[in-house]
Computed example of a mutant assay.
Amino acid sequence: MTVSIIRFGGSNCDRDAERALADLGVDAEIVWHEDGLPEDTTGVMLPGGFSYGDYLRAGAMAARSPIMQEVRAAAEDGVPVLGVCNGAQVGSESTLTEGAFTTNRSARFQCEHVYLRVENADTPWTAAYEEGEVIEIPIAHGEGRFEITDDRLETLREEDRVLFRYCDADGEVTEAANPNGSKDNVAGILGEDEHVAVLMPHPERATLSDVGGTDGRGVLRGFSSN
């Protein structure tokens, strides 16, 4: 399997993602967006950063890069796609997933460790965890607040497409545990199919025991189980 990590102007977590995947034994390569998807692509990761300086809206300009048409086509063919932080914003702007990510409630950039509760463990991205398990993964964003209409949120719940919700260390989903004001404390969701997912926290920054912990490894293992 070769995971293509899409680099846009302003991406800054592509190398972190490449290293984290390599540590898990997943073959990955960084692909410049203007070069298009390589023919041997069997997975796609949209990494974090500040593509195009977050002009217009975070992820809006990268979502209109021609390569995203290829990514959407690949997703329709069953290729696993994971968007992280800015990649989640690109994913939502590209209609790979529903909802939108907008300015944090604090109106400030926030970089800290947060707790997430696993809401659905029956997906490739969460199969390494137990439902209800609490994991700790860092965030680093200024526009991470998830917004969606009430009726679409209800659909996500009914279809079990909410992957993670912000919680406290005991797994309680509370307003105090919500770092950015995301609706219903949502931190990550699935697209229409389980092989497409986006999340705001950075699993690639939580794969080494001496640097950020290892709780994020299970998310990235989704590329191996898809």
Rank of each mutant, 00 (worst) to 15 (best):
residue 51 S to C: 08
residue 99 G to R: 05
residue 47 P to V: 07
residue 22 A to C: 06
residue 115 Y to R: 13
residue 20 A to G: 08
residue 98 E to F: 14
residue 16 D to Q: 05
residue 14 D to S: 01
residue 53 G to A: 12
residue 78 G to V: 08
residue 73 A to V: 07
residue 15 R to E: 06
residue 40 D to V: 02
residue 122 D to N: 15
residue 83 G to F: 00
residue 124 P to V: 14
residue 45 M to K: 01
residue 28 A to Q: 07
residue 81 V to K: 00
residue 86 N to T: 01
residue 109 F to I: 00
residue 70 E to A: 12
residue 129 Y to T: 07
residue 48 G to F: 02
residue 104 N to P: 11
residue 116 L to M: 11
residue 130 E to I: 09
residue 101 F to I: 13
residue 22 A to S: 14
residue 40 D to G: 00
residue 127 A to R: 14
residue 106 S to M: 08
residue 111 C to V: 09
residue 67 I to A: 07
residue 36 G to Y: 02
residue 142 G to H: 08
residue 51 S to Y: 03
residue 78 G to M: 06
residue 77 D to W: 11
residue 39 E to Q: 09
residue 119 E to G: 11
residue 19 R to D: 07
residue 140 A to T: 10
residue 111 C to P: 02
residue 35 D to I: 02
residue 33 H to D: 15
residue 107 A to M: 09
residue 145 R to F: 00
residue 36 G to W: 04
residue 47 P to T: 04
residue 51 S to R: 02
residue 139 I to P: 05
residue 16 D to G: 01
residue 28 A to H: 05
residue 144 G to R: 06
residue 119 E to K: 12
residue 141 H to P: 00
residue 108 R to G: 01
residue 60 A to N: 12
residue 105 R to F: 13
residue 105 R to K: 14
residue 123 T to A: 13
residue 60 A to V: 09
residue 44 V to G: 05
residue 26 V to T: 14
residue 70 E to I: 01
residue 23 D to P: 02
residue 76 E to P: 00
residue 67 I to R: 05
residue 122 D to R: 12
residue 78 G to T: 07
residue 78 G to F: 12
residue 64 R to G: 03
residue 43 G to L: 07
residue 19 R to Q: 14
residue 39 E to I: 00
residue 117 R to E: 08
residue 104 N to W: 07
residue 112 E to P: 00
residue 121 A to Q: 03
residue 79 V to N: 06
residue 39 E to S: 11
residue 62 A to Q: 04
residue 40 D to F: 02
residue 122 D to Q: 13
residue 32 W to Y: 13
residue 44 V to I: 14
residue 53 G to K: 02
residue 13 C to A: 13
residue 130 E to V: 03
residue 133 E to S: 10
residue 70 E to W: 08
residue 27 D to N: 14
residue 16 D to K: 02
residue 29 E to I: 11
residue 70 E to D: 15
residue 71 V to N: 01
residue 76 E to R: 10
residue 90 V to K: 00
residue 88 A to C: 14
residue 129 Y to A: 05
residue 86 N to F: 01
residue 138 P to C: 08
residue 36 G to M: 05
residue 143 E to C: 01
residue 94 S to E: 13
residue 119 E to T: 12
residue 104 N to F: 08
residue 74 A to I: 11
residue 20 A to P: 09
